[in-house]
Design a protein around this nucleic acid. Sequence first.
DNA 1: GTTAGCACTCCAATCGAATGAGTGCTAACA
DNA 2: TGTTAGCACTCATTCGATTGGAGTGCTAAC
Lengths: 345, 345
Amino acid sequence: MATETELSPRKVTILMAIIKSYLETGEPVGSRTISKETDLNLSSATIRNEMSDLEDLGYIIQPHTSAGRIPSDKGYRFYVDHLMESKDKEVQKMQEFYLEKTEKMEHLLKQVVKVIANNTQYATMMTTSRSRENVVKFVQLSMVHDEQLLAVVVMENNMVKNRIIPLDEPIDAENLLKLNMILNSSLNGLSVNEINLSVITAMKDQAGVHEDIIGEVIDTVAATISTEEEVEVYTSGATNILKYPELSDSGMSHQLLEAFEEKSELASLFADDGENETGIQVYIGSEAPSEKMKDCSVVTATYELGDGVKGTIGIVGPKRMDYDNVVSNLRNLKGQLDQLFKDNK
Amino acid sequence: MATETELSPRKVTILMAIIKSYLETGEPVGSRTISKETDLNLSSATIRNEMSDLEDLGYIIQPHTSAGRIPSDKGYRFYVDHLMESKDKEVQKMQEFYLEKTEKMEHLLKQVVKVIANNTQYATMMTTSRSRENVVKFVQLSMVHDEQLLAVVVMENNMVKNRIIPLDEPIDAENLLKLNMILNSSLNGLSVNEINLSVITAMKDQAGVHEDIIGEVIDTVAATISTEEEVEVYTSGATNILKYPELSDSGMSHQLLEAFEEKSELASLFADDGENETGIQVYIGSEAPSEKMKDCSVVTATYELGDGVKGTIGIVGPKRMDYDNVVSNLRNLKGQLDQLFKDNK
DNA sequence: GTTAGCACTCCAATCGAATGAGTGCTAACA
DNA sequence: TGTTAGCACTCATTCGATTGGAGTGCTAAC
């Protein structure tokens, strides 16, 4: 990073002070303020000179002549990078919260978004990556009724899916047992995309008389474990968006809230990302993954949720976001989750 | 209804004209407008006299001196009642839409709220009544793994619930079969609140050695079919609230959107209601079920969704709502749903 | 390199006048 | 008795002008 050569230490101090003040107040910050707030013992005139330089370098912006300065995207970027570096060494300010142990992933994720949204006061969403590596652990067909067959599929990560299949005629116990054996011996240990035509044909051969039924069952099982249903998105605190005038005044808030309502859209935004990096990522303004969020900042983090499932959390707030708090929350969350899944193992 | 004696036909015409105009424009409506719009051929002065009377009677309100009149809650109420009556006789304006057939209730409900929210442009939610009459049809325990027991419960309405129970030690096939028999013979045909302590004790007695396990299983089954999880709320178009200035300007919109985000809260609002009446209900202003909605109107309708399950839909919009359109949508929905469940049967 | 001083810019708030929609009332009319 | 024309009055809204203040940029002196 070329920042060291580009900015003198004094400029860094001033830039940080400007951003800090702006994060707190939301108002453009003037030279006098900086002169008083910092312990540089410089007059406002000197600060003005430095600020003029900082503006030329693109770190701060003047909304209009005779107003104070506000950070540019580049300024925020500098602040965030600086923050990340320094926090690696320092002892983190701990953000205290606890996650209750729970059996269902669904509950855990709901809890997580709620806690984070509450702590940060920003809109929060979380989704799990549909890990295609997920493997069938157990399949079972049962007769629920004369004309209804219940198919239950348990995946390696303990996700359970089920479906009721209507039948024309009942299957007797013997054949049911046989079908169950065929299904389990053929499917167990296979991931969704390993279940190809040849596996299916082999099963149908074994099924004999009930070939047609097994076809339907397979279809059902495939649909059941298909990825489509699998991607759930959990959100919380979407309405926090309305708390920040810079977002709620423009039509922006409407679009953002719609995005949070239309969860499927969100999922795709964050899905691709975080494949390689599992750390915390900060997207400022135009860096954000969606055009809709160009006036926002987005912080994402990806976590291991055990059994090869990855979860991505995303926090959306104004550019004037309390990055410090958000990042320390996400760091703490990592700790919590890691511990949770270590214990569960 | 005493309206006929209270209001002369001419007053009715004027009142309807006022409301109609206000619904369209959202602006207070003056005497001149009415004089021109109606075919009563009366001068504005006469209209003014009549309007003065209507105000004394409480049907319309003047927001401030020298402004036009807007309908009061009582005025809206009159309009709506009048609308309902007349529409019973007239041929309904048909609101065209189609629901795709789908297997899962969940999908159907998601579709319904989406269609209605789109058609009306108001915030829409739907929930199913936790019909306590629901009865256990089928229970099954299976060993998924050495230390994991899968419990699946199917209710009479084909709702399927499942849970994985961690075990300390595996159960052998023989005992598993026995447990399954005990569970099915004891529970099948019972509704949730018929499963009381004596039933449970009886089962535990039969279970013998595995008493402790059956206790846990029962707890799980109870939790599984407990009402808590059962009430799902589907929403769509919540952000439509922002489209109506009278709601979005005051802090109102924030609260409303929060309510729509915190779905559980909504559920309880509409749950009690509609037990007796299965028709369409209109709540205007302070009649609305929640303090938060005192500046809104709420239209609810309850439907039979087959197998004794009832669904309640609720539409929340400004008092200046297009009641006509909303009601005809809900009427059409009733037709669609009835047909859908007739076919399925 | 730093500082004091000063002219200048521009936003935001304030005030007042003009505007116009709409009413209430009165007197005349059928 | 019901209807209408006319007129004075009220009040929200709009617009422009004024003002105050915060902040800058520049220059000259330290």
